[in-house]
Amino acid sequence: MNIFRLLGDISHLLAIIILLRKIWMSRSCAGISGKSQLLFGLVYTTRYLDLITSYISLYNSVMKVVFLAASYATIYLMYVKFKATYDHNHDTFRIEFLVVPAVALALLINHDFQVVEILWTFSIYLESVAILPQLFMVSKTGEAESITSHYLFALGVYRGLYLLNWIYRFWAEDHYDLIAIVAGVVQTVLYCDFFYLYITKVLRGKKLQLPA
């Protein structure tokens, strides 16, 4: 494992913790897209099925369990415990527009036509666009709480760091996975507009507010 990969994983972990903590401490999931969280739950579930079938390392297994548990916990808090605070009027992105193409693409473009491999590929494609309901919600309300912005920043940076990891691995190990790389580029590009707003506004102490 190289430094970019490690920092990417830490950033990913940090994002998940920031979100869970925000919901728990404020007893509210206002401003958070339940649909994006459902999609992430689906992403982790379909990608980490190999947790049962193959052992890679303790680090790998622990991280997978943590991501799965945190994702399910977030969904539970949003849809059960703090359901009353869930802002579903603003969470109107049609997720079938993301899930159906991700399934189709996974069936068409994959490394191996086998169930576990297709589910992995689906999870990679779906992850790249899973944040769209959340970004759509922010654009609809025109603003985001600072803590939500920190969450989005950490989540966006994670795949960006993976891109550096893949560049490094291509150079150092001659290893590359085009499916992950292309999806990772798409995923990171989707955050660019947000990164700009985060750096120019949130880091200067201002609330993230979109121009009217």
Partner: peptide, 10 residues
Amino acid sequence: QPEPIDKDEL
């Protein structure tokens, strides 16, 4: 010969 698929990454 393609590289074996690396599933170590998360």
